[in-house]
Simulated scan of single mutants.
Amino acid sequence: MGDPLVARWLCQIIPPRCYFERDIQLWGHHLFYLPPMCKLNSVYEELVGLRCRLLSYLADV
């Protein structure tokens, strides 16, 4: 990768955590927890690895 602007843009697009992971609350009381379902998807693991490499690249630049 040769462009820090593209690396920074991709880091902003790829989420740092799974969006499906939720604590369901009602009136301040914790009802239940939904586990992250995207952990089962291998594409998500590849995106997290890419984001890690991009952050490492940006730290070096």
Rank of each mutant, 00 (worst) to 15 (best):
E45D: 14
L54V: 03
P36W: 01
R17C: 10
E21S: 11
F20Q: 09
S42C: 07
Y33A: 05
V43P: 00
P35L: 08
R22I: 07
V61T: 03
Y33Q: 13
E45F: 08
P16W: 06
C18N: 06
L40D: 10
L40G: 10
V48E: 03
L47K: 03
P35M: 05
M37W: 12
R17W: 08
H29Y: 12
L26K: 15
Y33V: 11
L55F: 00
V48Y: 02
L47Q: 04
P16D: 12
A59I: 01
L58C: 01
Y44M: 07
W27P: 01
P16C: 03
V6R: 13
Y33K: 14
L47A: 05
Y33D: 06
C11F: 02
L58H: 01
G49K: 12
G49A: 15
F20T: 15
G2Q: 08
C11Q: 04
I24K: 08
C52A: 10
Q12P: 00
G28R: 04
L54W: 02
W9H: 09
S56Q: 08
Y44V: 05
A7R: 06
D23E: 14
R17L: 09
P4Y: 03
E21H: 15
K39S: 12
R22P: 00
D23S: 12
Q25V: 14
C52H: 10
F20Y: 10
W27N: 15
P36M: 01
Y44S: 10
Y19E: 13
N41P: 00
D60F: 04
H30C: 07
H29P: 00
I13F: 09
P15L: 13
H29N: 12
Q12L: 08
R53K: 14
G49Q: 09
R22F: 04
Y33N: 12
W27E: 15
C11Y: 00
I24M: 09
L5G: 08
L10C: 07
H29Q: 15
